[in-house]
Structures are given as structure tokens and as C-alpha cells.
Design a binder for these strands. Structure first.
Length: 315
RNA sequence: GGACGGGUGGGUGAGUGGCUAAAACCAGCAGACUGUAAAUCUGCCGCUCCUUGCGGGCUACGAAGGUUCGAAUCCUUCCCCGUCCA
């Protein structure tokens, strides 16, 4: 097997916290380099959840194709592994068509799953999980952690006792794989093949970012977010479907149910978004080989600098 | 004017004589995170000093006095706030 597909193709990654201007920069770069945007965002994969997930409407895409949004219905469960598979397919297609991919990444786990791969661990098993969740509810998270300590002490040491979500996943891996989590992880992960990655990180000044988050939240509400949520509820998707837990959707749903005022909802959305941005920053700080740019993706200076970096990366 | 109830750290709010720099929760800050990740979890969170120790000093529970070996907790006066009666 040989051929052009084995050559390394450039891949541009634009990463950063929410509201840092990844989409704007992505589109700008795509226009200048004849590229297409590949979204790496765990919320934009859900159809019908548009305004609050900050999807770029077609009218603002400037003709740049956007991939990996609107993949599943609200009731479906989507995972990092699924993202990885779909992203690889899209990237291979772009490579074949000799288009430059510009990946706009807000979900650190999905980005890492794509670039570094995931261990060959078992996928979620809803039956096992519901049993484990029942145990946790009945006997407390400590109980399941004790169980994990017995069947996989190494994994137990790495997971906080009260982190039920991660304890459940560890037990799930250990049970289904019939190996310890450590063994599964040490068996290696398959990194993305065939691309030369250039990463650009957006890191606006914290205060400015927070101010932008607050303004953007108000804009989203002003442009019909509440009506979108009302329509989603009316369409009858299960109210505990995953996307209703996304920041904003849960608060606006509470408001529609009369639990909180719109003003309270907006304030708590802004707060949750700031906290989320901080977590993203913490995650991305550990991302290797990032060209960090201090500012928003829409800033002219940032764009100029990014263009230089991309030009170097695609040379 | 009278009768009660209450004033606690950025917020809510426990605490009725020592175990209290003061529970818990929130906010804030920092961090972790290989299949729910916009999720989940962890640490710190009055000021200050150093030989970083279950270390020392200082300040702190509306204000000022007092009782006590010891007070956020008891007493007195005063100042606020809420409810009710006039």
C-alpha cells in the first residue's frame, strides 16, 4: 500500500475557551486558505440545539462548509469515541479532496480522543451502568469505590471516592474488558495518522472573556433562545435528554417551568459559562505544542498572527 | 410609643460558655479528568510571620461596656432590620 494518502497533510486546530472567537477565526482562516471547518464540540453535534450551543448559522458561514454538527437527535447518547470515528472519516475525505481542515475545538476530551486516540476500552454499556448507578444510589458512592478497590486497586487509587461518574466507568472497563483499567490503557492508543497538526490557542484576557460571555448570553436570549427551548420542549424530546443538561438549556427550561425568573436564569447561565470557560482553559493549558495568542479570534491582530502560523504550518 | 423576632466571614445560613478562624452550601481562586466532558470530581478560601508545623502572632460574629480562668454564645446600654399592637 502506498500513494499520496500516506503523505502528511496539514491540519489546523483552533482551540480555546467558549466565547474566545474560535468560530470566527476558523471561518476567517478557511476563507483565506480554501479550507473547511471541522467542529470539535460535544454540544453542537446535537440537532435542534442551535442558539445556546453557538452554532454558526449558514448565513454567517460565508460559504465555508462546516462539518460534524447536527449529527444526532436529542435523545441519543454521543461519546468521544463516536466523535473520533466520525472526525477521522471527515478528515480523510478532506484529505482526498485536498482541502485544508480547520478544526475548531472547544471540547478538550474530544480533541484529545481524535489526536491521541482512545485506549481500546469497552464502550458504554447502558445495562451495566444502570445497575452500577442503582448501587451507587442505594449504598453511596463509597460502596462502589470499595468494590473497585477490590477488583482494580490501581484504578481506585486514581479516582476520587465521590466521583461516581468516573468510578462507574472504571468498574465498567474492568468488568467488560476483564483487564484492569491500567492494563487497558497501557495497551496503547492509536494517534491520528496522516496529518501534520498545527495548533493555535486563543486566550483572551480573563476579564475581557468574562465580559464577552455575559454579553453573548444576553445576545443569545435576545435572538430567540427561549423560543428555541420552548419548541424543543414542545417537540416532546425526553426532558432529561442529555442536551437539556447543557448550560443554558437547563436554566431556560427551569424558567419555562416557572421555577426561576428569566433574570435569574440569565445570571446563572452567565455564571455557569464562566466556570466552564475556566475548566476549558485548565484543560487546554496541558495541550502540547500550542501557539498561544492572547486575544479574541475576531481581533485583527490575532487573525494576522494566526494567518502567519497557518502559512508556516501548511508550507 | 409598646410586644416579640433578629443582626455571624463576599452571599445564604448553622452555631447558645472552652472541642470555633467559626458547620454546611454558594460564589471566588487553583487543579484533575482515555468513551455522559457545557459532564464529573479535588484542593484552597480573615490577615500575617517563619525553622511550613495537626507552628507563632494579630484581627473577627452590629457598637460600647460588663460577668468569667475563658464569650459569637451570659448581663447592661445603645444603634440598626423585620413582624405585630397602638
Amino acid at each position: 500500500m502506498s500513494g499520496p494518502s500516506l503523505e502528511l497533510a496539514p491540519l489546523i486546530v483552533v482551540l480555546g475557551p467558549t466565547a474566545s472567537g474560535k468560530s470566527a477565526l476558523g471561518i476567517e482562516l478557511a476563507r483565506r486558505f480554501d479550507a473547511e471547518v471541522v467542529v470539535c464540540d460535544s454540544t453542537q453535534v446535537y440537532r435542534h440545539f442551535d442558539i445556546g450551543t453557538a452554532k454558526i448559522p449558514a448565513s454567517e458561514q460565508h460559504g465555508v462548509p462546516h462539518h460534524l454538527t447536527d449529527l444526532v437527535e436529542p435523545d441519543e447518547v454521543f461519546t468521544a469515541g463516536e466523535y473520533r470515528r466520525r472526525a477521522i472519516a471527515v478528515l480523510d475525505d478532506l484529505k482526498r479532496r485536498r482541502k485544508l481542515p480547520v478544526l475548531t475545538a472547544g471540547t478538550g476530551l474530544y480533541l484529545r480522543a481524535l489526536l491521541e486516540g482512545l485506549a481500546d476500552a469497552p464502550e458504554r454499556s447502558e445495562e451495566l451502568r444502570s445497575r452500577l448507578r442503582a448501587i451507587t444510589e442505594r449504598r453511596g458512592p463509597e460502596y462502589l469505590h470499595h468494590l473497585l478497590a477490590r477488583i482494580d486497586p490501581e484504578a481506585a487509587k486514581k479516582v476520587a471516592v465521590r466521583d461516581a461518574q468516573k468510578v462507574i466507568r472504571a468498574v465498567e472497563i474492568r468488568t467488560l474488558a476483564r483487564q484492569t483499567v491500567g492494563e487497558v490503557h497501557r495497551s496503547g492508543r492509536e494517534a491520528l495518522q496522516g496529518f501534520r497538526v498545527t495548533k493555535i490557542g486563543l486566550l483572551p484576557n480573563r476579564k475581557a472573556l468574562y465580559a464577552h460571555i455575559e454579553a453573548r448570553t444576553r445576545d443569545m436570549v435576545a435572538s430567540g433562545w427561549l423560543a428555541e427551548v420552548r419548541a424543543l420542549v414542545a417537540r416532546g424530546s425526553s426532558p432529561d435528554a442529555k442536551p437539556f443538561q447543557f448550560i443554558g438549556y437547563r436554566e431556560l427550561k427551569d424558567h419555562l417551568e416557572g421555577k426561576i425568573s428569566l433574570e435569574e436564569a440569565v445570571r446563572s447561565i452567565q455564571q455557569a459559562t464562566r466556570q466552564f470557560a475556566k475548566r476549558q482553559i485548565t484543560w487546554f493549558r496541558r495541550e502540547p505544542d500550542v501557539h498561544w495568542l492572547e486575544g479574541f479570534g475576531a481581533d485583527a491582530k490575532v487573525i494576522d498572527r494566526a494567518v502567519e502560523i497557518v502559512a508556516n504550518g501548511t508550507r
